[in-house]
Design a protein around this nucleic acid. Structure first.
Length: 909
RNA sequence: GCCGGAGUGGCGAAAUGGCAGACGCGCCGGAUUCAAAAUCCGGUAUGGGUAAAACCAUGUGUGGGUUCGAGUCCCACCUCCGGUACCA
């Protein structure tokens, strides 16, 4: 019986061709057109009667190279989840956009002298076209690019929010999520002004406020790359040259914007706990934040303990000061328990006390050493392989716990940017100090002994002993465990005004300015004095004047100096006179590429809003992102920066959830066929567009999911694409008569009740595929569908109803083919919102099960018994089995383990 | 160095502590064909054994351990991949 394909869509009928074989080209373009014309995936905001699901891909940088096979991997995974979830009745937000600022377009502009916007738009068009070829169910009406003035207007607005915020570390408050927190970003207008500052006048108050903002201009050592014409973030410098292009990078001090992310260190750390992120990523963030607890301790500079007791008496009554006296070195240590083992101290070469502490005899060598250190790059200084170096300053400081004078050195293994820039050195119990002490024959004293005889032992002639243990040679603390000594010695120092508990973060503030053209301009002006010199006072653009657009420039060549590209603008962009007559010059730095990607997930919820960056109602409805999928390369920076911005917005009441991304999944990298990273230079790059042309988007999607677990790194195999393509062809032929002229159902497909066997196979498949999608185990879901087609291949007659259910299961994976088959099965509308099949438990129970029989854990027989066979019967059946009997012969059965339905195991002697 | 993750057929892989290798690729054999492509059917861990089976032994990086039973849990080690780099 031939079932003619009935209702064709208006417009489709005319093009309906003879299609004997699986013609993916026709099928795919037809359905892509259909989805676009019918706006199938357009999503409504704030739908009350359906649960929302926000599924987000890390949006790509639209490079000139076009799509890479790595892109469709995560995008297919999220697309499957989205299509599946829609069929499960969820209201799904699934958007796509472009992280389109960045240096490549600017470099292209410089070479070809065309505006970077032009090249960027071309690249975006290529990317969009390529993504649309893959049939992703994005709501394209929500598309955005970080380079759209309508978008970066709000990036600038958020910057101004950050600029307008100071961090009140002691503030205890309860957010809209009902959780009590300590520490809150508050409006700068609420910053308490000390009386002395207030008395000094308005400009002093403004300067005081400026120092406390979350966005501050500071003189900072930066990586300046003359060739690229910009400063680079540390992560953009590899082995002393720029990551992009390999150009030399020099260190220099420049006025730069810093965002004070480190103030949020505690919250960024603590609030990781509840996120459904891979533990490894959480750990990387924890390590990056690097919170440590220890003590700050003051060492007074003096060559003898003479006046020490007077100073200590003063401290005991006055307490530990905010800032130490001019002759006091403040150090940070995580091992205050080793204070009795201090045999020298080290200041970083940049430490402000160095000049003061250097004695005339040491002047020359100290000068020389500082000079050398300043010339070294960060990398040279932090090269672990090199031997340690340093110079004695000639001065001594008094150890506050025992009154011992210890020599003060400078050495570049101590960094000015961490802790207090000075350390107490305990060579007996710190590897670095040990190495240094050996180098310069400084005494090594043991103050910690192994706690247990069977644990690691101390042998200070060989190496430092860095384990915990018990105190020795430590005065009153002898015999006490390390942890206790830490606590008590810190408390003791605090009581005497000589130290205090302190917390430090490895996390540094975020260098937030670049000297590029193709980034967001800052909405900030510098006030100028009569001579046209900056006074150091700043003014923000009023928010209603945003965006600050890019100026016209004649060319895109770097200035060749640290002067930003935007300073090449004409003076009408650069200067203006304020209403009060003050001359203003624009900030000419631009924001780094991270800025736009910090908040795009918010804008997708409301990308056309011209009044607000997001409508609060939409924010409450869509946020947080339920599933965020992208590469692990963004494990730290992007995800940390985004979380930071989100928390500032949260503190300022602009968003209602403390975290932006509830669940995170990292897709594994796809390697080339040779198992190496794909790259042009290795010649192993696979072009997805080519694969789509050869085998179709459905085959590409299916293959990318079939390769292995999503999170895993896996090599590409073109023959594997062939395999899934064959599967799709088999599915096609299972349903469609491939010898007919028109698309008609295969004669085996009939509108009759399904056989019990077919129903069992179908419902097992439904259950397995559903479970696998829930687990994001797409590779095994596909295996299950292959098993389904294998099982159906020997059926003479196939019930149409079974195939319909199967087509629905297949649809999230191979949506074009599934739509076409759904259509061929007689349905007039898209299957995108058909209810997801439900496994009927009736068809999941087995009639009989195969149970393995083991003797001493070794497989000896397999029994086929009715489902539900009791343990006794199972054991009796096993004992009756020929092979088992032979194995048991002449042996004593010690024990029998029977797990009904699972196994029998005889333990014999 | 430190912190993660992973090591299973020729290859990609699968396996709530309970039949290792599902599914796919490749390969071998067969059907179809004048022939080929495509398609379909069967086989495919290793060694022994058999005419063929049955059957026996071995097998999840290495070495130990826990358990009636370990790819899975524990300890030590090796290799590869990713992150990080003197953070006191």
């Amino acid at each position: 019986m031939l079932t003619p394909v009935v209702p064709l869509f208006p417009g489709f009928a005319r093009h309906y061709p003879a299609m004997p074989r699986y013609d993916f080209r026709r099928i795919e373009s037809r359905w892509q057109q259909y989805w676009e014309q019918h706006q199938t995936f357009r999503v409504q905001d704030c739908v009350a009667d359906r649960p929302k699901l926000y599924v987000l891909d890390m949006f790509p940088y639209p490079s000139g190279e076009g799509l890479h096979v790595g892109h469709p991997e995560g995008y297919t995974a999220t697309d499957i989840v989205c299509r599946y979830s829609r069929m499960r009745g969820k209201n799904v937000l699934h958007p796509m956009g472009w992280d389109a600022f960045g240096l490549p377009a600017e470099e292209f502009a410089r070479r070809m002298n065309v505006h970077p916007r032009i090249k960027t738009e071309q690249n975006i068009n290529t990317f969009r076209k390529q993504l649309k070829m893959l049939g992703f169910s994005y709501d394209w009406s929500r598309e955005l690019s970080t380079t759209d003035p309508d978008y970066y207007r709000w990036t600038q607005w958020i910057f101004l929010q950050i600029y307008d915020t100071w961090y009140d570390a002691g503030c205890v408050w309860t957010g809209p999520d009902g959780v009590q927190r300590r520490g809150r970003g508050r409006p700068i207008s609420e910053l308490p002004i000390p009386a002395a500052v207030a008395a000094a006048g308005q400009s002093a108050v403004r300067r005081y406020q400026d120092q406390h903002r979350l966005a501050v201009l500071t003189e900072a050592p930066v990586n300046w790359c003359p060739e690229l014409g910009t400063v680079l973030a540390n992560e953009e410098v590899v082995d002393g040259v720029s990551e992009r292009g390999g150009h030399p990078v020099v260190r220099m001090n420049l006025k730069q914007w810093m965002l004070r992310i480190s103030l949020y260190g505690d919250r960024l750390l603590d609030e990781l706990a509840d996120l459904s992120w891979p533990e490894s990523i959480k750990l990387m963030q924890r390590n990056w934040i690097g919170r440590s607890i220890g003590a700050e301790v003051d060492f007074r500079v003096a060559s003898s303990a003479d006046s020490q007791s007077a100073w200590q008496t003063g401290r005991a009554s006055a307490g530990f000061p905010m800032r130490p006296e001019a002759d006091v070195i403040r150090i940070y240590t995580t091992r205050p328990d080793t204070l009795y083992g201090v045999t020298y101290m080290v200041l970083s070469p940049e430490h402000p006390l160095v000049d003061q502490l250097t004695t005339p005899q040491q002047q020359q060598s100290v000068q020389q050493y500082r000079q050398q250190a300043s010339l070294k790059s960060e990398l040279e200084r932090t090269d672990l392989a090199k031997t340690k170096s340093g110079v004695f300053t000639g001065s001594y400081a008094i150890n506050p716990v025992n009154g011992q004078p210890v020599p003060v050195w400078i050495a570049d293994y101590v960094l000015i940017s961490y802790g207090t820039g000075a350390i107490m050195a305990v060579p007996g119990h710190d590897e670095r100090d040990y190495e240094f002490a050996r180098q310069y024959q400084i005494p090594i004293v043991q103050v910690v002994a192994a706690a247990a005889a069977d644990g690691p032992q101390a042998d200070l002639s060989q190496a430092a002993f860095c384990e915990l243990g018990v105190a020795i040679n430590s005065g009153p603390w002898d015999g006490m465990p390390t942890e206790d000594v830490k606590q008590r010695i810190t408390a003791d120092l605090a009581a005497r005004g000589l130290g205090r508990e302190a917390v430090n973060f490895r996390l540094r503030d975020w260098l937030f300015s670049r000297q590029r053209y193709w980034g967001e301009p800052f909405p900030i002006w510098h006030e100028l004095d009569e001579q046209g010199q900056p006074t150091g006072l700043l003014r923000a653009d009023p928010v209603e004047t945003l965006p600050v657009l890019h100026p016209h420039v004649e060319d895109f060549k770097p200035t060749g100096t640290p002067e930003p590209m935007l300073s090449k603008a004409t003076s009408d962009w650069l200067y203006r006179t304020a209403e009060d007559g003050v001359r203003l010059k624009r900030e000419t730095n631009s924001m780094p590429q991270w800025a736009g990607s910090c908040w795009y997930y918010l804008r997708f919820c409301d990308n056309r809003n011209s009044q607000q960056f997001i409508d609060p109602e939409k924010e409450r409805y869509w946020l947080p992102v339920d599933l965020y999928v992208g590469g692990a390369e963004h494990a730290v920076l992007h995800l940390l920066y985004s979380r930071f911005w989100h928390k500032v917005l949260f503190d300022r009441g602009h968003v209602t959830h403390p975290e932006p991304f509830r669940r995170l999944v990292n897709q594994g990298m796809i390697l080339g066929e040779n198992g190496e990273k794909m790259s042009k230079s290795r010649g192993n790059v696979v072009n997805p567009e080519q694969v789509v042309n050869d085998r179709g988007a459905d085959a590409l999607r299916l293959y990318e999911m079939f390769m292995g677990p999503l999170e895993q790194v896996k090599p590409w195999q073109t023959s594997g694409v062939e395999g899934v393509y064959r599967f799709l062809s088999r599915v096609w032929r299972m349903i469609v008569d491939d010898r007919a002229e028109q698309v008609v159902l295969d004669s085996a497909v009939q509108d009759i009740p399904a056989t019990p066997e077919q129903l069992r196979v179908l419902h097992r498949t439904i259950r397995a595929v559903t479970d696998d999608i829930e687990r994001m185990a797409f590779n095994t879901a596909i295996s299950r569908m292959m098993e389904f087609t294998n099982a159906m291949s020997d059926q003479e007659v196939l019930a149409k109803s079974v195939l319909e259910q199967f087509v629905l299961l297949l649809s999230p994976f191979a949506p074009h083919l599934a739509e076409e088959l759904w259509f061929a099965l007689g349905h007039a509308e898209t299957l995108a919102y058909e209810p997801w099949p439900v496994a009927d438990p009736q068809w999941l129970v087995e009639d009989s099960v195969e149970v393995p029989v083991q003797v001493n854990g070794k497989l000896r027989a397999r029994l086929v018994v009715p489902a539900g066979t009791t343990g006794e019967v199972l054991q009796a059946t096993a004992e009756a089995d020929e092979t088992v009997r032979r194995q048991l012969e002449g042996k004593t059965v010690v024990r029998v383990i029977v797990v009904p339905g699972r196994l029998v195991n005889f333990v014999v002697k």
